[in-house]
Lab assay of single mutants.
Amino acid sequence: PKDEAKKKVKEAIKRGDEETAKRIAKKYNLDWDDAKREADEER
Rank of each mutant, 00 (worst) to 15 (best):
P1D: 15
P1A: 14
P1G: 14
K2D: 11
D3M: 11
D3C: 13
D3P: 05
D3T: 11
D3N: 11
E4L: 14
E4Y: 15
E4H: 11
E4Q: 11
A5L: 08
A5T: 03
K6H: 07
K7G: 04
K7R: 14
K7I: 11
K7F: 11
K8S: 08
K8Y: 12
K8I: 11
K8A: 14
V9Y: 05
V9F: 11
V9E: 00
V9A: 04
K10A: 10
E11S: 06
E11Y: 05
E11P: 00
E11T: 04
E11L: 09
A12R: 02
A12G: 01
A12W: 10
A12F: 13
A12K: 02
I13K: 01
I13C: 02
I13T: 01
K14A: 12
K14D: 07
K14Y: 12
K14E: 10
K14H: 12
K14V: 07
R15Y: 05
R15C: 12
R15L: 08
R15K: 08
G16M: 03
G16I: 01
D17R: 03
D17K: 02
D17P: 01
D17L: 05
D17G: 01
D17W: 07
D17M: 04
E18M: 15
E18D: 08
E19R: 10
E19L: 10
T20N: 06
T20H: 08
T20P: 01
T20S: 07
T20L: 15
A21E: 00
A21H: 01
A21K: 00
A21Y: 02
K22A: 04
K22V: 04
K22Q: 07
R23M: 13
R23Y: 10
R23K: 13
R23N: 09
R23W: 10
I24D: 01
I24P: 00
I24G: 00
A25N: 00
A25E: 00
A25Q: 01
A25S: 04
K26I: 10
K27T: 08
K27F: 14
K27M: 15
K27C: 15
K27P: 00
Y28E: 07
Y28I: 04
Y28W: 09
N29M: 07
N29C: 15
N29D: 09
N29W: 03
N29P: 02
N29S: 09
L30N: 00
L30Q: 01
D31G: 03
D31Y: 02
D31P: 06
D31S: 10
D31F: 03
D31M: 03
D31A: 05
W32Q: 01
W32H: 01
W32V: 03
W32D: 01
D33N: 10
D34I: 11
D34L: 11
D34R: 07
D34N: 10
A35C: 15
A35R: 02
A35M: 15
A35Q: 05
A35G: 03
K36A: 07
K36Y: 09
K36C: 09
R37D: 05
R37P: 03
R37Q: 08
R37T: 06
E38V: 05
E38D: 09
E38H: 04
E38G: 05
E38T: 05
A39H: 06
A39G: 04
A39I: 10
A39E: 04
A39T: 06
D40G: 08
D40E: 13
E41M: 13
E41H: 09
E41P: 05
E42N: 07
E42Y: 07
E42W: 07
E42Q: 08
E42K: 05
R43D: 12
R43K: 12
R43N: 12
R43Y: 12
R43L: 15
R43F: 13
